[in-house]
Simulated assay, not measured.
Amino acid sequence: MRYLIVLAFICSSFFANAQTKHPDGPFKEFHSNAQLKREGYYKNDKKINVWKEYYDNGQLSEVYVLDDTGKNTGLKREYSKEGVLLKETKNVLDGGLVCSEYDNEGTLLAIYGLREQNNLGRFVWSGDYKEFYKNGVVKIESVYDNNELNGIWKAFDEVGNLAWEVEYLNGYKQGAYKQFYENEEVKLLGLCNSDKKDDEEKHFDTSGKLLKVLKYKRGELKKTKDQEVIEEVLIPEGIVYKQPLFPGCEDALGFSAQNKCNYDHISGFFKSHFNIGKFDVLAPGYETKKIKVNISFRISESGDVNTVRATSDYPKVDEDAIEAIKKLPKFEPGVKRGNPLTVPYSFQFVFLAGGNSK
């Protein structure tokens, strides 16, 4: 059988664009309590221009903008059920986007840059990242490139004193790390290799005098001669967002490597649990027929796969595709700023049914 599978992380609005066919013009959908749920415009069966989503209490939940071809522009605002602005993405002069996030009280939480990836309407973290305490003092400073944390990650205390510096490369800790006293003297200094402590870690007092030296190898602390009890200092985690991980992908370093690992495992799992051969009956004789099925699902805060949907021209194909995805194992949940979150995924599966596919 010949087939092609493409897996891509998506925003929640994407798959709604590939569901049931819609006539051109205005569109409205309602909650079960008759409150407006969403509204916008369709053209050539694609969402275009401004779309609005609402909670069941009538409060606006989000507004996002697509171009005339249905491609996501990245422009978006999100609100809480109480009407508080939680997230806003706007254009900036260099052609990118800047995203501002707020807490449930409307206090600025973080600002970071976004850039479109391969002109496909998908956006990645690229540029400066800043996170703030409630008092407005900078908490974190770092730089992202194509969703990967790179360069010096800095953490500050609530009065603005530098507390940590950690070097990152391609989304993982690689290079020097430093912890500081309030007087800006170095408290400890060490090296990371492939996200793990390696070689010597030096500890100093507030005047800069060396107190002790610990030795690590691939993240493991070597025993000291006098067997003293040592309380290890953990390096704070600089990565803001961690995607869900398929079992076996936990050791992949960086967002891109983890994304590829997820792709390989999810696509391989689906191929092995979706029986293409049974659909040869859809193309009798020596005919062949290309069948395209769009599949979406969510990985919950606990790592479970749910909200599985599939759309093609054949209900039985959809049914079998959904059953295959429901068999996916439990994932390591996605996390953002230390809090678990639900993450949407989608992929498109294309295969040939019929005589020439054998």
Rank of each mutant, 00 (worst) to 15 (best):
F15W: 09
E287L: 12
G127F: 04
K47D: 03
N356H: 07
G70L: 03
W125P: 00
I325M: 11
Q243C: 02
L191F: 15
K81S: 08
N356D: 09
D205P: 02
L328F: 15
L36Q: 00
E105K: 11
Q243H: 01
E29G: 07
A110F: 01
S267W: 01
V92Y: 01
C192N: 15
E116W: 00
K21S: 10
Y345R: 09
E323H: 03
E201M: 13
P236F: 09
N339V: 10
V6A: 12
L210Y: 05
E53M: 08
L211R: 12
N49S: 12
Y79E: 07
R218I: 00
E88A: 04
S142H: 04
L234T: 14
L234M: 13
Y216G: 06
A176C: 06
L36T: 09
N57E: 11
W125V: 01
K197Q: 08
G355Q: 03
S12K: 10
G121L: 06
D264A: 11
I276F: 06
T69V: 08
A324L: 06
H22E: 14
S207M: 10
Y241D: 09
P329T: 08
K260R: 13
S346Q: 14
G190E: 06
K134Q: 13
L352V: 03
E232K: 13
G74S: 06
G285N: 10
R2G: 04
N72P: 00
K209S: 12
V159C: 03
S256F: 06
P26K: 12
V240W: 12
G277D: 10
T307M: 09
E165K: 14
F246A: 02
I140G: 02
L97S: 06
N49H: 14
G248D: 07
E148S: 14
T20M: 12
F246L: 01
L7V: 02
S126Q: 12
T206K: 15
G175L: 05
L75Y: 12
D128W: 02
D103Y: 07
I276S: 01
G354D: 08
E82N: 13
Y286M: 10
Q179C: 11
W51K: 08
L352C: 05
P333I: 08
K178E: 11
F30S: 02
I230F: 11
C261H: 03
K222N: 05
E148D: 09
N275P: 12
E185M: 14
L210K: 07
V166M: 07
L36Y: 05
S126T: 14
P247R: 06
P333W: 09
G96K: 10
